[in-house]
Computed example of a mutant assay.
Amino acid sequence: MHHDELMGKVQVLAHLPDRNTAERAAHAVVSTLAERLPAGLARHVAAQLPPDMAVAMTEMTDTSGDGSGATGERFGLTAFAGRIADRAGTDEETALRNAVAVLEVLDAALAPELTERMAGALPADIRELLPVGRAAEYT
């Protein structure tokens, strides 16, 4: 999926007023997701994203300063929403709405097995934001 298509879908799904807001939301979600995922998995996800989104993800895997790319921080939905809100300059309710939209677009952009691995690496409360997580509620 190309950058413009990805941002257009995020804008529509999250009901955002313009492309800049969609980009800010998408980068905030991807960066926060990268903090939560194990570094190797985050790099695999980044490899399937458009270059600017890949940078948002891989920057977070390289913040340890020792070159290890250590991420996989342990935090739940409240911290996830708070970090997205801080990065995007929104409130937590808007951040969660944006996260659902971005994760839905990522679900369409990524290989299904990668989405499943990502879901398996997330705690249940964050996993529920993923389309696969929401679908599991009904099975």
Rank of each mutant, 00 (worst) to 15 (best):
A25C: 11
P50W: 12
T32Y: 10
L49D: 00
A54D: 02
P51T: 10
L37Y: 14
A39G: 15
P50M: 14
H44G: 03
H44N: 13
H27E: 15
V45G: 02
D52I: 00
A39I: 04
A42R: 06
M53N: 00
A28E: 00
A42G: 14
H27Y: 12
Q48V: 06
E35Y: 11
V29W: 06
A54R: 00
H44Y: 12
A47K: 14
S31E: 15
L33Y: 12
H44I: 02
L49A: 06
H44T: 07
A25R: 05
M53A: 02
P50H: 12
L41F: 14
S31K: 13
A42N: 07
G40F: 07
D52G: 06
L49R: 01
E35A: 12
A39E: 08
A47P: 04
H27T: 10
P38K: 08
A42L: 09
P51L: 11
P51A: 15
A28I: 00
V45Q: 04
H27V: 12
L37E: 02
Q48H: 14
P51Q: 09
L41Q: 04
A54M: 03
H44P: 02
M53C: 01
M53E: 03
A34G: 15
A46E: 06
Q48L: 09
Q48P: 06
M53F: 05
A25K: 01
S31T: 09
A54Y: 03
A34V: 13
P38G: 09
Q48F: 04
H44R: 15
P51C: 08
S31H: 09
G40D: 05
V29T: 08
H44A: 14
H44D: 14
A47L: 09
A25W: 02
H27N: 14
V30N: 11
A54H: 01
A34Y: 10
A28P: 01
E35S: 12
